[in-house]
Each structure stands twice: as C-alpha cells, then as structure tokens.
Write a protein that binds this DNA or RNA. Sequence first.
DNA 1: TAGTAACCGGACTGGCTCGTCCGTTTCTGG
DNA 2: CCAGAAACGGACGAGCCAGTCCGGTTACTA
Lengths: 183, 183
Amino acid sequence: MSTQLRADAQRNLARVLDSAAELFAERGCDVSVDEIARRAGVGHATVFRRFPTKDALIAAVVSKQIRDLAAFVEEALVEEDAGEAFRAFVWHAGEIHARDRALYEGLPRCVEMPEVAEAKGELNELIERLIARAQEAGALRRDVAADDVSTLVGSAIRGALDSPEPELWRRYVEVVLDGLSTA
Amino acid sequence: MSTQLRADAQRNLARVLDSAAELFAERGCDVSVDEIARRAGVGHATVFRRFPTKDALIAAVVSKQIRDLAAFVEEALVEEDAGEAFRAFVWHAGEIHARDRALYEGLPRCVEMPEVAEAKGELNELIERLIARAQEAGALRRDVAADDVSTLVGSAIRGALDSPEPELWRRYVEVVLDGLSTA
DNA sequence: TAGTAACCGGACTGGCTCGTCCGTTTCTGG
DNA sequence: CCAGAAACGGACGAGCCAGTCCGGTTACTA
C-alpha cells in the first residue's frame, strides 16, 4: 500500500471529502473546486493534490454512496417478504436522492472510472438478486432490470425536487412502484 | 407593432432560430451561442442583437414547442375515449422528449420569462382538462395534476436516453402510464 | 532539537463563455 | 442610383473554471 499520509494531510483530506459531499448534495456537482476548498478551510491546490482531477473527487464521493447503498441491499436480501424488501429498497434509494444530488448527477459523469464502475457493478449484482426474488414472488414486472429501477426512481425523484412541495417525490415513488408492480 | 425587419435580418433570424432548435435538441441547452451562430452562418453578435440574452433565445425555442404541444392537446380533447386521449398525449409528449432535449432542459431555465410562463399556463390548463376527463372516465388516478404528469413523463424519458438502447424510453413510459392508471 | 521530506496555498495559465462595441457592409426607398 | 438607415461580425472585456507551479511552512524522525 502507499505510504501513510502525514497527520495534517489526513485531516485535510477528510475535510475536503466532507465538504465535497455536502456541497454536491446541496447544489449538485457543478459547485467549483474553489468553493469546496473554501468550505474545507484549505487552498484548492490541496484538493488537486489528492485528486488529480475534479471528476476523481466526484468519483470518490459517489463510489462511497454506492457502497453504502450496496450494504443496504445486502441486508434487504435476507428479508422474508421479497416484494416488501424490494419496495423498502426503492424507498431507501428515494430518501437518498431526495436529500442528495451527488449520486444522481455524479454517477453518469464518472461511471467510466474503475473505482466507480466496480462499485456500481457490485451494487447492480445485488439489485438483480433483489429483483429476481421479487419477480419470483410475483410482486414485480418481469421486464425490468437493475438499471431500469435505478433510473426510473432516480429521475422521477429529481424531477419532483424542483417543485416547491418538498414531499412530492413520495407520490412519484408511489406511482413508479405501482407501475413496476405486476398488473 | 415594431417596424418590419430588413429582409436579410429576417432570414438570419430564422436561421438562428432553426440552428438553436436543432442544437438544443441534439445536445441540450449548454451549447454555446458561438456554435449556434456558426451553424446559422452568422456572427454571434447577430444572435445577441435579436435576443438580449441567451436565455431569451432558449425561451423563444421553448415557448414555440409548448404552443405546438398545446395544439396537440386541444385536438386530443375532442376525442371520445378520455382515457385513450390521455394516453395518446403522454405518448406524443414522450416522442418529443425522446428526440429533443430543449423542452426538458430549457423549461426550468426560463419559466420565469413572461413569454414562456404564459404559454405554459395555457398548456397546463388544457392538460388539466384532459386529466379531469380521464379521471371522470375512471382511467386515471385522482391524485395527479398537469405538472405531475409532465414531470414524471419527462424525467423518466430523459433518464432512459443515457442508455445505449434507443427505444428503452417506451418501456419507461409504459411503467409510468401503468402507475398513473387507476389501480 | 534539528534536519528533511511532506505538505501547504497564493498566484498563475489557458480555455471557455456570455455579452458589448464599433468600424464596415448591405439593403431599401425615394 | 444613391444616401442613410439598418444590420453585420470581428475584436474585445469580464468572469468563471480546472489544473499547475513554486517559495514558504509544518509535521515527523532520529
């Protein structure tokens, strides 16, 4: 493994990652690196020292969120009621998208980066298993895959968030879940 | 009314509008004014002479699309089968979003401009009537309004278009329509 | 405690964008 | 055909951004 970072550098790195995650969540991936550095209390050169490019920083934030989500799915997979497990996953993903723009905006921007591609691959595998179980239980249409669910839920929610009504996204998730359930 | 434009100016204005519509459709509203001007065969100062700001140009393109869509809804309103009329509208809007990014990206960017706000107001009124008829016919959930339908359909489709599969959006529209129909 | 490598951030570069200015060209009406 | 108004577009300004450089500072180690 690479050599240990100096203590101050470690602290700064953590602050940068936290600030980036916050700002990406609140205002999307278009916030400037300068602003992230400012919130972290460092110069923006310090950001570029740890992440060769802005996309690499986004990838770090996004891949962490993907791994967190994968952990959730892993738990959902041991639930007895497969249909309920699937719905719980969708609602959980919904909550994430509703309060955090990073995943939805950042993922398409850095799917190519190996770090993110790998995490997404693992997540997708888990989601596929969740889907297959729900389909076998007769609780889910047969013609949907992991990416379909992610895209439908993600974009429906992001669409809802431009509205003044803050909880509108829940109604949209209901509609999508209804559409996804077997007719 | 304002005085007539000179013949060459009229021609250039038309070329600018066409080029802008094409480029916004293909690559979204982030294409630069320079590029639009280049495709139109004019200098970019000519664009700014007709439209004080880039958003004003976007508004011109978007409001035209809205009026076209409103004309379609007006026709749909005289169909006998209210549920079928609603579904036809959704599919039509789907086709538009699937081959044109301008409306989805441009509308949120210039809803404030009176030109666009007015067109959108009229369109929404028509959609509300279409929705009300479908609801009375028992073909549509009671808890959706015009903006909900526009947002759900628009964002589901835009989400589908990042995928390699070009006709994926149709499956997503099916899911949303299923979710919107009465359970 | 002193030497050194790691780290820091202000200043800089280059590129892109929207929007303006002004000298030149082109249309048009008399 | 010609004068003047209208329109044109190249050049410019300002602002923002990602990414680099380098002289000064700070933390670890012996």
